[in-house]
Design a protein around this nucleic acid. Structure first.
Lengths: 154, 154
DNA sequence: CTTGACATTCGAGCCACTCCAAGGTCTCAT
DNA sequence: ATGAGACCTTGGAGTGGCTCGAATGTCAAG
């Protein structure tokens, strides 16, 4: 398959795949006569693992190392380090799931309280949109904390 | 509380908090006489929500808007948009949890197969550490796919 | 009264993409 | 067989979101 299909399969952009290759985080793909990259099923699994690890915020260097070890054959020095790295990631995954469940509960709770405007809880000099003075906000025409509509003053 | 305690509580760096403020994504904190920022419990909750949303890869602008709506009082135009944004995020959270569970299962499976070196599955011209020619890898003294030890050739 | 932990500002640097320009290749409909 | 449009190539510049550093100020403990 070509790069577009690979990228689609894993859910990233073709730019990302090319960036990984040119930076050395993925091996150079084999090419067709027309220089197009050619990929197989193993490459899909390799990239998928790499991307899943990145989505855990594993630094690209570590993610590439783990994915490379798992998909590019055997490395003499992987025996000690790889299982440890994988275990660390599994612990991180468990923490993430716990955190996500807590966030979900919080958002559900917030949804239940919408429509009952509260007084400001934050320590503010005044509405945030009046104290914010940066260029981005001014250019966008709205305060990030309350869109373009002024907040109800306390 | 001062910025260090706030940052510690939420699990980010003080740099990040100052960056959010100077970029306008958080309201300007009230100051003590010595110009130190002063925060309260509501600010902890505001920042925590913002950071949790960022960890979901919600763009900073959206995350700041949601957190601001939830913690800085009532906005006239929030009634329609906010519940929709929150629902979207809850769906995203559900997807994330599913994905994380799948990744965990995959890593567990990989752990079970370690110690049994496999032949290369990837389509390679040769070992990745020999075909990679970028500066980073050379400078670090090892290929990201197999550390510094050459892979066993197929 | 110094040591050390904490705070301030602002600007530069960094990671991991993301976009762009200028061009080549392929398929398909007219 | 020709042109439109979808795909691919390269290399380099631009972006979002931090992260670090330098120079300096504040404050509690020994």
């Amino acid at each position: 398959m070509r790069i577009g299909e690979l990228a689609e399969e894993v859910g990233v952009s073709t730019d990302t795949v090319r960036f990984y290759e040119r930076s050395g985080w993925l091996p150079r793909a084999s090419r067709r006569d027309n220089a197009y990259r050619e990929y197989g099923d193993a490459d899909v699994e390799h990239l998928r693992l790499l991307i899943d690890l990145r989505r855990l915020d594993v630094p690209l260097e570590d993610a590439a190392r783990i994915a490379g070890w798992c998909h590019s054959g055997h490395c003499a020095d992987s025996t000690a380090e790889l299982p440890r790295m994988i275990e660390e990631r599994r612990e991180e995954i468990a923490d993430r799931i716990t955190g996500l469940q807590a966030l979900d509960a919080r958002l559900a709770d917030l949804l239940g309280h919408l429509g009952r405007p509260r007084r400001s809880l934050a320590v503010l000099d005044g509405p945030c949109c009046e104290t914010a003075d940066n260029v981005v906000v001014a250019a966008e025409g709205g305060c990030p904390c309350c869109s373009s509509t002024p907040m109800v003053a306390e």
